[in-house]
Design a protein around this nucleic acid. Structure first.
Length: 686
DNA sequence: TTAGCCTTGAAG
DNA sequence: CTTCAAGGCTAA
């Protein structure tokens, strides 16, 4: 399995590898057509290419010697060589089309037969998982009415075209279905927003047959100068499966959020849709810019009710404002009786205060806006208040900017935001982090240990920036494509991992032999951890890359469900612990710096490094999360499970490793190293 | 406990 | 002075 870390590190989790190997050995029986059993199956392409891969630049000796340290050693000694030069382009380009893979966040609308503006808008909204978008009547018509495949003459482009078009339509239809379900369960009392109730009531009560069909509920906006104003009740549209015809003169707001937008919705959207619509998890905190531009016109980001003003950092309704205030002032500690993923909307917001509060934080409400002394009146001075009209820079980014320009450049670039599924998690964490420092202490940013900052600065080395463009690949089976894709990702990420390790502060002072031992000891855990981090904001999915996600269901299909479930669990744990990026990078290095590895020449030196890092992490968690009393311990307690996962994965992979793979690839080299040490106890010899 | 309305008071 | 985001009050 591959893994990748939040900002873009890369990694392959052993699980994927295991799956790959499993499939390689068992595929022919499960799939019907092609592929002569053991022969140059497409499945093997990845394996083969991974072989080609390093040979281009590496000395034949290092490969042929096949000591398990060959490639690692080479990489350690050529740490600054660009990854791309190590891996032949031909190999990199052999990736598959994302459309062949199970992907819930496909955002490539380039083939969509819609206007550029609309395409851009849709793409951006979908990418950012925004809950609603304003759309013109013309564009709405395009979406709803022009989805008939134009012509089937040429297969590829128009096929994709209609596929994409159908996806848009399906997305809207699915949303409508949600409304229908909600409608039925609520006995005709339904609506995205309360003011829609009457409209929907008419439809649902007049014709029961209608309920069996999807509806699309859209409410119109009236253009009023520069501002969009919600329309009067009566002019909202309820489109019955595309029958309605939007008025070309009117602007409409399409809500990507249904009254029940969490689990049910997710299921609807995950199976056969190309879009990931908003759920309670996938929300994107409202930025100041958004706030400022149209905050008052948007529904409350927490519950969807009518916004009453700017409260505690974002525009919210009066009730969520009061709820947030009460919760913080009274130090409530709500616990969700379910899975902490309850829907929060204006109808059920009272049901689960835990999830409502979580959502408040997630959307960006600021704890520090609650005054400890309860003084009334006046203006608040926390970052984001008062300045929100002027300052359109995300406060989080502003804060990070001070800490690390370099890191910020990475984190704040649009391309990164879009391919980083953990954005909202990071924002939430940043909120908690920022607000839990003692008010009495320095007014500035809480101190971040230098060691952690140094480590953080290396994250760009693990970025996915140079991932090969995904091109269409004529592979008959998505599984094959997926495996191939994962293998390539894994290989590439392992290379980066080595380079990353080599650049770590103090790691360079360790002897190369020990470096190799350490890397061989932890590579799969590192990959698993980075996978978890990358998936931290996509509940129920393991994100193997910015475009591809694996659910437990899909994993079951592929035969590595066990590992994926474990990864999902551990990711949930990290999420609940509010693990942030600094803690994440610290954990990674802690996985690497393990003085107990057999055969180390200088375990003492490594232990010293470990002690320093442990101390830095402890300092960080205790100063930044003083209210989470044992965050440090809780984070560390997750590491054994990571080891378990990686062990499981490697074990499975090794057992099913095809012989054709046996002598190639960094991945295989590392696996062989593991195998050696596990089977004959000799560990890696240099 | 919720949520709508009221009061307060610093900033501009 | 006005604005507006805090906290307070209180009926449901």
């Amino acid at each position: 399995m591959l893994t990748m870390s939040g900002r873009g590190e890369l990694g392959i989790s052993p699980v994927l590898l295991q799956a790959i190997a499993q499939t390689l050995s068992s595929h022919s029986s499960t799939r019907e057509p092609p592929a002569p059993p053991n022969k140059d199956n497409n499945r093997l392409q990845a394996v083969k290419s991974s072989k080609n891969l390093k040979i281009s630049k590496l000395s034949m000796d290092s490969v042929s010697s096949s000591t398990s340290s060959g490639l690692v050693s080479h990489l350690l000694q050529n740490l600054n060589e660009p990854i791309s030069s190590l891996i032949p382009q031909s190999q990199l380009s052999r990736t598959l089309s994302p459309s062949l893979l199970p992907s819930n966040t496909k955002s490539d609308l380039s083939l969509l037969g819609i206007s550029d503006d609309l395409r851009g808008s849709l793409s951006s909204h979908i990418k950012n998982r925004q809950r609603s978008m304003v759309i013109s009547g013309d564009d709405l018509n395009n979406l709803l009415l022009k989805e008939e495949p134009s012509d089937d003459s040429d297969q590829s482009p128009s096929h994709s075209n209609s596929q994409n078009m159908n996806s848009v339509s399906s997305m809207l239809s699915a949303l409508a279905s949600q409304h229908m379900q909600e409608s039925l369960s609520r006995k005709n009392k339904v609506g995205i927003r309360p003011e829609l109730d009457s409209t929907v009531d008419v439809l649902t009560s007049n014709n029961s047959d209608v309920r069996s069909q999807p509806q699309i509920i859209i409410y119109s906006y009236i253009n009023n100068g520069n501002q969009d104003m919600p329309s009067p009740q009566g002019s909202d549209l309820v489109l019955n499966d595309g029958e309605g015809i939007p008025d070309n003169q009117t602007t409409y707001r399409v809500l990507f959020q249904s009254p029940d937008d969490s689990s049910d919705n997710k299921q609807l959207f995950s199976s056969d849709m190309n879009f990931s619509c908003s759920s309670s998890h996938d929300v994107v905190p409202v930025t100041d810019a958004q706030n400022t531009v149209d905050g008052m016109n948007q529904p409350c980001p927490v519950c969807g009710d009518k916004v009453s003003g700017y409260h505690y950092g974002i525009f919210t309704c009066e009730s969520c404002k009061g709820f947030f205030k009460r919760t913080v002032q009274n130090k409530k500690n709500f616990v969700c009786p379910k899975a902490s993923d309850c829907t929060v909307n204006s109808f059920n917001r009272k049901k689960c205060p835990a999830c409502r509060f979580k959502r408040c934080l997630l959307m960006g409400m600021k704890l520090e806006a609650i005054r400890q002394d309860r003084t009334r009146g006046g203006r608040s001075s926390y970052d984001g208040c008062a300045t929100h009209l002027k300052n359109r820079v995300n406060p989080l980014e502003k804060r990070l900017q001070k800490k690390s320009i370099r890191l910020l450049d990475e984190m704040s670039s649009p391309s990164h935001d879009s391919d980083d599924g953990s954005k909202s998690h990071r924002n939430l964490v940043a909120i908690l982090n920022h607000t839990t420092k003692q008010p009495a202490t320095n007014s500035g940013t809480p101190h971040i240990p230098e060691l952690l900052r140094d480590i953080m600065n290396l994250e760009p080395l693990l970025s996915d920036d140079d991932l090969p463009p995904e091109t269409l690949m004529e592979i008959p089976f998505p599984e094959q494509a997926l495996y191939s894709y994962m293998m390539q990702l894994a290989e590439l990420r392992l290379y980066k991992l080595v380079r990353w390790a080599r650049n770590l502060p103090q790691f360079g002072a360790i002897s190369t032999d020990d470096q190799i031992l350490l890397l061989q000891n932890c590579w799969s855990e590192l990959i698993a951890l980075s996978l978890c981090w990358r998936s931290i904001d996509t509940p129920n999915q393991i994100s193997i890359s910015s475009t591809h996600h694996i659910t437990a269901e899909w994993a079951q299909h592929l035969g590595f469900e066990d590992v994926v479930i474990r990864l999902l669990n551990i990711t949930d744990n990290f999420r609940k612990l509010f693990m942030d990026q600094f803690e994440y990078v610290a954990l990674k290095v802690l996985l690497l710096i393990t003085p107990d590895v057999k055969g180390l020449k200088e375990p003492k030196k490594i232990r010293e490094f470990q002690d320093k890092l442990t101390e830095a992490l402890l300092t960080y968690t205790s100063t930044h999360y003083s209210h989470l009393t044992d965050k440090f311990g809780a984070l560390l307690l997750r590491l054994p499970e990571l080891s378990r996962i990686s062990f499981m994965s490697k074990d499975i992979l090794i057992k099913s490793l095809p012989s054709s793979m046996a002598s190639c690839g960094l991945l295989v080299e590392l696996l062989k190293g593991d195998n050696k040490s596990e089977s004959d106890g000799s560990g890696l010899k240099l």
